[in-house]
Nucleic acid binder design. Sequence first.
DNA 1: TATGAATGAGGGTTCATTCAT
DNA 2: CATGAATGAACCCTCATTCAT
Lengths: 189, 189, 189, 189
Amino acid sequence: MARQPRADAQRNRARVLEVAARVFATEGLSVPVHEIARRAGVGTGTVSRHFPSKHDLFAAILLARLEQLTAEADALNQQTDPGVAFFTFFATLVHAGAANRGLAEALAGAGYDLESAAADAGYDVTAGLRGLLTRAQLAGAVRDDVDSADVKALMTGCLSRVGSGGGADTAALDHLTAVVCDGLRSKPG
Amino acid sequence: MARQPRADAQRNRARVLEVAARVFATEGLSVPVHEIARRAGVGTGTVSRHFPSKHDLFAAILLARLEQLTAEADALNQQTDPGVAFFTFFATLVHAGAANRGLAEALAGAGYDLESAAADAGYDVTAGLRGLLTRAQLAGAVRDDVDSADVKALMTGCLSRVGSGGGADTAALDHLTAVVCDGLRSKPG
Amino acid sequence: MARQPRADAQRNRARVLEVAARVFATEGLSVPVHEIARRAGVGTGTVSRHFPSKHDLFAAILLARLEQLTAEADALNQQTDPGVAFFTFFATLVHAGAANRGLAEALAGAGYDLESAAADAGYDVTAGLRGLLTRAQLAGAVRDDVDSADVKALMTGCLSRVGSGGGADTAALDHLTAVVCDGLRSKPG
Amino acid sequence: MARQPRADAQRNRARVLEVAARVFATEGLSVPVHEIARRAGVGTGTVSRHFPSKHDLFAAILLARLEQLTAEADALNQQTDPGVAFFTFFATLVHAGAANRGLAEALAGAGYDLESAAADAGYDVTAGLRGLLTRAQLAGAVRDDVDSADVKALMTGCLSRVGSGGGADTAALDHLTAVVCDGLRSKPG
DNA sequence: TATGAATGAGGGTTCATTCAT
DNA sequence: CATGAATGAACCCTCATTCAT
């Protein structure tokens, strides 16, 4: 049986992860590791123990998120209505991103390479997205002339709607998301 | 009256500005000032003299660009067809951002704060955009339920379509831009 | 009377000592304590409990070796031929050093101070060496104008002949040892 | 023409080099760069500017020394008496090493890799030593059964005679050197 | 007693900015 | 004015040691 006394360690790890996610989301990726440690109430070494490099810490945050999203994509693939599945996932992505600026930056391609890390870990959101998109297109729910890269770009656009400040303007975000989904729907002609 | 700067100084300033614009556009905002100076063939002190801080240098570059864009917005406001004017400006913004990674980052809200610098200098692209948008909406060319922030977000989304690599995939960018414009057009119902 | 340590503790201590000896011998003194613990299959705290500081661990290893060497010196002092006794011990020292990089470093004077630790523990190799040397000199088997410090220096020299790699080039080491012993032998004139 | 205002820079560079040589020689290679800077009365960045990494600083010190030694070996190769040439160079190496603990460590093979750096810079002391040795052996002044690696090992041995403290015991060093040279001389039988 | 997570000082290096030349 | 050497705070990371479990 696995040793149990990791209670503290687990809590610290979770705490660091949580603080780092919030700090990176709020203030960007350039916040020193030292500062993360300070706010989490641990020593710098503790952060390093759990996440050997800053990159690893960042990757851990994203992968945790991606794991959820991949699972969600899989679940939605079981959904009967392909259109509903796709648009639901799109909204999910937007909301996930909105809550985490670090994630958004990474998704936007700036800074760390998310895709490869995700691929390494087996969480391929892009594949999930592509699957949902294709299915929706085959069902005639989404225009045929967009690909998953387009969809990701539009998601990034929606994300950029929310400022770096607090998350109060969810309404604006949701509205823009709706507009974009509108635009993605199949055109009659 | 202000002293007329030496011809040398003028030339150096221009040269630094030009090199920095290219470098920031190509490689992002994290390039050391030292490197800018080196490529411009001047000392680091010369850069600092003209632009006391890195932020100032960056602001100067963007302001030059924003000045152009503001002027273009003004010119398009004279255009007879409000819809054409708006969509033309939208495409212009996208292309400008695509050609300049630093500008894109700034427009996306990452890194330095563009808006305030622009406001300080009197070049308010957002105002120009808002004007064109309103006119297009009044003319029934653009959906009523979007505002300038939405449009900027969509522009950012389009920009994120081009990777950090070379600008070879203009086709994909243009296509996505077209799709987005499509979505912005007034809906019948 | 001192408490009899637990059997567990004894075994762990021995195991750490053994692993550390091998690791220090193979890879030098800069190997992290953490690594010693890992290879010994114990926690870092266990190492620290038995050897409060890294220095103490190192001293303990060397003292074990020095105890052997001191005993050997004593044994050789009973030997009838003083010259044979001395040269045998010299070769023994060289081989001991060659087999143990940490010991070699310590004998060479780099890193931790071996002598004082040895003196504290009552194992004085230098004294043993000095005794053998003096006896050999009185018997006319070794030049009169060298002292034990010279002999130790020559030993260090021999040791430096073997590279940091594997111990395959024993031949070269033995040859150099022979040459040095040759030089130490009494001169006719 | 080359710019001249390097007066300060040159002085600082020389000063850092000099201080570093002394400090490394006195206290070994583990002294922090920060400490070198402090003692030289400059900022840490100044050291880094002149010597991008600690290794580079160290190499610069040694190379300066090796350049001298290589030149000396070349000069001695012109000397008529091969035996005198060889033994003179041997003594020179010993004295150079004795005056510089860092050099000694490097010559002994510990720490940074001197040989390759020297080879890169074209200062191959080992080659010089080998040349002098071979010539002396052909002339019958040195035993045939030693090679340059043996000689270097013996040199290291002599060096280890001087403790890490002050250099007052030159007499002992010189004496040991003489003894070693004695042993290297050709044997009649 | 054993564990290994936590600590935090200290390492080398980078770089925006200042200032003597 | 131009220069680029100097500055030193800040960064990320390592590791000997301590201490709660």
